[in-house]
Design a protein around this nucleic acid. Structure first.
Length: 768
DNA sequence: AGTCCACCGTTTTTT
DNA sequence: ACGGTGGACT
């Protein structure tokens, strides 16, 4: 610790008797184990807490915060605590309040984006924004980019605005603005003009007095770098930094943290490299792997004692994740029960899988297990449908997490757009969204005129509207409508200053004709949309002002989820991070689906390792039992496709797994061509070359990993090679398109593209 | 301006 | 298979 930091810190505390856990002044420490206590008490200097799944991470984080506050080392306003989701922030806030037996007010706890926005509002003018700048979301971004692409005459068929948006977002994740992106990296995106588009996009945002999510961080970085005195103020203010889910930080978040931590270096990052599953959206596992280089002398605390899962679940998860390279390495252990072996079950097709899961849930439920304690975790959102339809059939209550969120619904965005224009008349994106919603005769041509006038005069569309109303350029009908609309907004703005914002929302939705539009709409969704609008208005009452509400909405894009009733949960593996269930069904473990082919195609071995971490996250959600399922046939993008079991199944240590076979199903295959290679492949897996090699090396972890890592894409599969003609019992003749270990992608003459195990095909000339 | 048809894409998700 | 979108037609 530096002497400076020492001087700033509160008087040093001594822990009598060498056992602070027993110190009556710190009752909250007693609930911790030794490593957790170390993580809590190492308050000064950089600390990395490597918190394995289920090791009490949140408890450590919250206790640490409580400890800093309780010992008077810092007041609430002097701690910066960063999370990724609002949910995590809320939980932390509640739990610290619980530990201290009082609510904590006035602290800086929130998501990266919320905290950055809070800072940016203070210094907005330094980056050319006004303090009331708008935060645009992906939908606004898409509209804006479409306009820009059209203006630049770029074919948005070939270069979809969505893809351009992603590219820009990824650059911003890495802290890059258009001037920092190399031409090579820009590639031929947008016909080689992506950087022009990026630049134009930034200029448009500035002119709109708006920024996107990435900009919240980037603008902060700009300010910190150009105004050291502001950064120093924050150094003085924030004595302690606390970061959750550090493995998910991207470069710009990392830079932001590093700048803020520079002064006193009292930064504590908590995370788990094995649970890094957001690489595809810019997260850099490297941040956590590099921590002790970024912060020399960092204390590293490993939390390895798991309080969640049975011994066998832990061992299976550990065995699986051991196949990854470049880990910091942890060994989770438990004093809990050994538990059941994992079940792995295969089915003919995905409906069969769903049937089994449904039956199994009912059977567990009859034995007294709570439905709330059960979850089905899937790789892709599309998989939930199969389970939903089965659960509806058998009347099993369920909830699906994910899907379109409340604030993403069309009617909510429309309503918000009205409110945004009231709040900020120059918010062009919002204005354009609702100018002709409901239809009021302000069609494309009128809007184009407005847009062009605005651009030519360098004013907002609202201002352009007022300008155009003084001319004859608009057709009479459009003119009348526009007069009415502009007058309405003036009136509403006036009311916004006087009346309360909840009433205002009602007035706006009513007088604009927006509510009426849905009332007249005869579609089946209309009543639901009206319901949502009511809910929106209701939600506003919890905020002090319209501005406050809008800020909340743009940063907290989540709906209020109803818990409560007995229901099983269906969700993606990503959505399951941080949760736990007694029973976890891990469905759809098939190569191509999981690990996901696209992840493999795009990022190769890195992608595979991230998929494996996803499997690890899934397994470690289970407290009592984990059931892995796969199907031999699944509909992918509409077509029934024959698929083979996930390679991750082979990677589960054999002695921990109970490969239950349903006699009816397995007995039926017996080499009769019609039953499908999935089952055959499953039955034969133990004989496959890859497995045999793996088996031979059981207990020799290092060599095992080495072999399995290479086997993925380089070992020849029984001598087959790309381009070779082969014959398959069920699919007939075909040409090998790709060889991945003992798995072959074959382009069959009749059956199309399939993946099959190598030992189910023979060279074409040996057929018959 | 509104409706209909053809075509395309289809992993994960926060803010 | 399906839903969303964009273009063309009425």
């Amino acid at each position: 610790m530096t002497s400076e930091a020492e001087a700033r810190a509160a008087p040093p505390h001594r822990y009598p008797g060498g056992d602070p856990g027993a110190d009556p002044r710190y009752p909250y420490l007693q609930a911790l184990n030794e490593e957790q206590r170390r993580a809590v008490l190492a308050v000064d200097g950089p600390v990395l807490v490597l918190a394995g799944a289920g090791t009490g991470k949140t408890r450590v984080l919250t206790t640490r915060l409580a400890h800093v506050l309780h010992t008077g080392r810092a007041g609430p306003g002097q701690v910066l605590a960063v999370t990724f989701t609002n949910k995590a922030a809320r939980e932390m806030k509640d739990r610290v309040a619980g530990l201290l037996h009082r609510p904590v007010e006035g602290w800086w706890l929130g998501t990266f984006h919320a905290l950055a926005a809070r800072m940016l509002r203070r210094h907005a003018e330094l980056v050319g924004l006004q303090p009331n700048f708008t935060i645009i979301d992906t939908d606004d971004r898409l509209r804006l980019l479409k306009q820009l692409l059209a203006a630049e005459d770029i074919d948005d068929k070939k270069w979809p605005a969505r893809a351009i948006g992603f590219a820009i977002e990824r650059w911003k994740d890495r802290g890059l603005l258009p001037d920092k992106v190399s031409a090579g990296e820009a590639g031929d995106l947008a016909g080689g003009r992506i950087l022009e588009i990026f630049q134009a996009y930034q200029e448009r945002l500035a002119r709109l007095n708006a920024c996107d999510f990435g900009d919240l961080l980037l603008h902060c970085l700009t300010i910190f770098q150009s105004h050291p005195e502001i950064l120093e103020d924050y150094h003085r203010q924030f004595r302690y930094l606390l970061v959750d889910e550090y493995q998910d930080t991207n470069v710009s978040q990392y830079l932001w943290l590093r700048l803020l931590a520079q002064g006193h270096r009292n930064i504590c990052c908590v995370g788990d490299d094995d649970q890094s599953i957001y690489g595809w959206r810019g997260a850099e596992v490297g941040n956590i792997l590099r921590f002790d280089q970024d912060f020399p002398g960092a204390e590293v605390v490993r939390l390895e004692r798991n309080y969640r899962s049975t011994g066998r679940i832990l061992a299976a998860a550990s065995g699986l994740i051991a196949h990854n390279e470049g880990r910091l390495g942890k060994t989770l252990w438990t004093e809990g029960e050994e538990g059941e072996r994992l079940r792995v079950r295969g089915f003919w097709d995905s409906p069969g899988e769903a049937r089994y899961v449904g039956d199994e849930i009912e059977s567990l439920h009859r034995k007294g297990e709570s439905l709330n304690g059960m979850a089905i975790l899937v790789r892709t959102g599309a998989q939930t449908q199969e389970f939903e339809s089965r659960f509806v059939d058998i009347g099993l209550p369920y909830r699906v997490i994910g899907g379109p969120r409340f604030y993403e619904r069309m009617e909510i965005r429309d309503a918000l757009a009205y409110l945004r224009v009231v709040n900020q008349p120059d918010d062009d994106l919002a204005f354009e969204r609702i100018a002709n919603k409901p239809r009021r005769g302000l069609g494309d041509s009128s809007l184009r005129l407005l847009r062009e006038t605005a651009r030519a005069q360098d004013i907002s569309m609202m201002q352009a509207a007022k300008l155009l109303l003084g001319t004859d350029e608009l057709r009479p009908q459009a003119r009348r409508s526009l007069v009415a609309l502009v007058e309405s907004f003036d009136r509403w703005r006036d009311q916004a200053e006087h009346g309360n914002h909840v009433e205002l929302a009602e007035i706006v939705l009513d007088e604009s004709g927006y509510t009426a539009m849905w009332q007249e709409d005869k579609s089946i969704e209309a009543p639901g949309r009206l319901e949502n609008l009511k809910e929106l208005v209701g939600a506003m009452s919890e905020f002090e002002s319209l501005g406050g509400f809008l800020e909340h909405v743009s940063l907290v894009m989540e709906a209020i989820q109803g818990e409560g009733d007995e229901m099983v949960t269906v969700m993606t593996l990503h959505a399951a991070k941080g949760l736990e269930f007694d029973t976890v069904f891990l469905a759809g473990w098939e190569d191509g689906l999981f690990p996901n082919q696209r992840a493999l195609d795009e990022t190769g071995l890195r992608g595979l390792e991230e998929e494996r971490r996803l499997a690890y996250v899934g397994l470690t959600r289970a407290k009592q039992r984990a059931i892995v399922t796969f199907a031999a046939n699944r509909r992918i993008a509409g077509n029934w496709t024959s698929v083979i079991p996930s390679r991750f199944i082979d990677e589960l240590p054999d002695e921990l797994v109970e490969k239950e076979s349903d006699p009816g199903l397995y007995g039926a295959h017996g080499g009769i061509g019609g039953f499908g290679d999935g089952f055959a492949a499953w039955g034969e897996t133990r004989l496959s070359p890859g497995m045999a090699r793996a088996r031979a090396r059981e207990g020799q972890a290092e060599r095992f990993i080495e072999v399995s890592a290479t086997r993925v894409d380089s070992l020849p599969a029984g001598g087959f090679s790309t381009g070779e003609r082969v014959f398959h019992q069920k699919f007939g003749y075909g040409t090998i398109a790709q060889v991945e270990g003992d798995r072959l992608s074959i382009d069959f003459d009749k059956a199309g593209d399939k993946k099959v195990m190598a030992n189910f095909v023979v060279p074409a000339d040996q057929a018959g």
